[in-house]
Amino acid sequence: MSWLRKLIPTRINAETRPTRRVPEGLWTRCSACSSILYRGELERNLKVCPKCNHHARLGARERLDLFLDPEPREEIGAAVTAVDFLRFRDTKRYRDRLSQAQKKTGEADALVVTRGRLAGIPVVAGAFEFGFMGGSMGSVVGERFVRGVRCAIDSRSAFVCFSASGGARMQEALVSLMQMAKTSAALNALREAHLPYVSVMTDPTTGGVAASLAMLGDINIAEPKALIGFAGPRVIEQTVRETLPDGFQRSEFLLEHGVLDLIVDRRELRNRLANLLAMLMNLPAV
């Protein structure tokens, strides 16, 4: 083949290469199966690839927008914002990382919480913004989560959380670890109030978020093929010094090992969660 390629003039050769450029805006490429997709169609499909079913990541606001009824909606804890109380500095200052992440995502921190309805059922829903410092949980995430849970208790609503996070925010050191304790304790209050908590784990959910609020759902749900685990695959590989099997720490693996109730396709989530919540909350069928 190579001798033939050499004979072809470079201009033609370039055109035969598989890395065809996708025009910006109108078209996009599925990161799993590489199919070229019409952006409008992908959006209508809730960013699930129509060819291979790959669930692309969603931003926090996008997620809540797709999940909740259009009205009414009220954001909770928006005024809670980060403080660099340790003046933490690694290769960059925490303060600078925060403002970069804010510019990039348009969010003040990595969790957005909104009170609203799902098919008429009162819910408070939180969603992690993975683009904001890897969805890491620091003081703001912890506080917004807890305020959301309290709001759910006060308004007799169900609580739903979409997690997408690498874990605790190292720049807040031990204070970030304590957010695991803080969020878990809040969920205990919800439990005592007999209100349901549904945890929806999306790609990826690992570390301190997995080992606290994400695993504590009365119902634990995951999107298909999401990476979910305590330790990241790289850390495990370094520890056990062997390559990990295909599908290790993916939703299907977790379902098989008994820590998930369900894997739900994003396009069915609203209907199936509304059905479940209505039954748990003793409401008429939706």
């Binding site: 080992a211 609020l213 695993m215 685990g229 305590f230 330790a231 850390v235 820590v259």
Partner: peptide
């Protein structure tokens, strides 16, 4: 730290830790 191994993940390391957090709080 908690053990980051294959078996630990299979048996639900994150769930085990999370469970203790909520139970100890009460």
């Amino acid at each position: 730290g908690a053990y980051p191994g294959v078996g630990a993940e299979e048996r639900g390391q994150s769930e085990a830790i999370a469970r203790n957090l909520i139970e100890m709080s009460a």
